[in-house]
């Protein structure tokens, strides 16, 4: 059960939290192990997610880089699809930034609001809450869903990796700050958090495709710093960061990179790792077995 003090938060209904869910392209079409473990996790903690009907790409960095008009309209359409009365949950940090900053721009600009209403033929929802996956932990008490929570992760040494999501653009700087959520959550579950220098260095995003050498350089710095600090794995909360940390790493014998959602699901006893881990370039199974987190 969830804490009674949280019962009145939006999205709460008969003990179950309900959110509409925007997966975004990275999770939907490539980070399947991330999506799958995230959905399992939500299910286990009594959260009901309904995928936003017919959502489109948020425009990502590309629209933002070369076409401001398209960059404005793509998130706008998604906002227009969000059902009233329940929060919209986004798991991808980059989609989150695009959607939230567009939402706030419309909210604060009557001309833009007019444009929105003319284009999508519906009133703008002034009360829509757009939240990141991290904000779930303010609304549930994870320890309520398991016995002996602090024994779940068996002191596995974790280097948390946020990428650039903690460096919010100036227009979102007064919004929620996610600093420390991975640390707090996973240490409660018995993980051993390592501190190291590059936990919020950008992963290179699309430079991974267009300028691989630049991405390789930052990825190697991140992974080798984590390894020097004696981490056994890196934990990310972004599908794209995960991909870059895996494919652009050229350090010798790199440690595995896990999705935050995979560890969360495992702590709750979900046993779907056979679907997730074959999709990783660095196989986490030997480490997880060594630590007693996996038996088969």
């Amino acid at each position: 059960m969830t804490k009674s003090s949280k019962i009145n938060k939006a999205g709460h209904e008969s003990g179950k939290l309900k959110f509409s869910f925007f997966p975004g392209c990275s999770l939907k079409a490539s980070g399947h192990e991330n999506t799958d473990s995230l959905l399992k996790f939500c299910d286990m903690v009594n959260i009901e997610l309904t995928e936003l009907d017919d959502w489109n790409c948020c425009g990502s960095s590309s629209a933002h880089s070369i076409d401001h008009e398209v960059a404005k309209l793509l998130p706008m359409r998604n906002i227009s699809l969000a059902p009233k009365g329940i929060p919209l949950l986004i798991a991808c940090p980059s989609c989150m930034i695009r959607m939230k900053s567009t939402y706030l721009k419309i909210k604060n600009d009557p001309i833009l609001k007019k444009e929105y209403e003319t284009l999508w033929e519906k009133p703008f929802d002034e009360d829509l809450e757009i939240i990141h996956f991290f904000e779930i932990f303010e609304r549930i008490n994870l320890e309520d869903y398991m016995d002996e929570p602090d024994k779940k992760l068996k002191k596995i040494k974790i280097a948390p990796y946020y990428g650039c999501m903690l460096s919010m653009p100036p227009d979102l700087r007064h919004e929620k700050n996610y600093y420390g959520i991975i640390e707090e959550t996973l240490s409660k579950l018995g993980g051993d958090i390592i501190s190291y220098g590059y936990s919020n260095m950008c992963c290179g995003t699309y430079l991974s495709a267009a300028k691989p050498e630049l991405a390789e350089n930052v990825v190697n710095k991140i992974v080798s710093q984590a390894m020097e600090a004696k981490a056994e794995c890196i934990v990310t909360a972004c599908s794209m960061c995960h991909l870059n940390l895996e494919i652009r790493c050229t350090v010798k014998d790199p440690i595995p990179v896990l999705h935050f959602s995979e560890l969360l699901s495992m702590a709750l006893g979900v046993e779907d790792h056979k679907k997730w881990f074959p999709r990783h370039i660095v196989d986490p199974v030997p480490l997880l077995k060594k630590r007693g987190l996996l038996s088969s």
Partner: peptide
């Protein structure tokens, strides 16, 4: 690269890596 990303968004509404 950016143009190709937007090409797929234009075609499918979502990116196709």
């Amino acid at each position: 690269f950016h143009e190709e990303v937007l090409n797929t968004v234009k075609k499918y509404g979502r990116t196709h890596k």
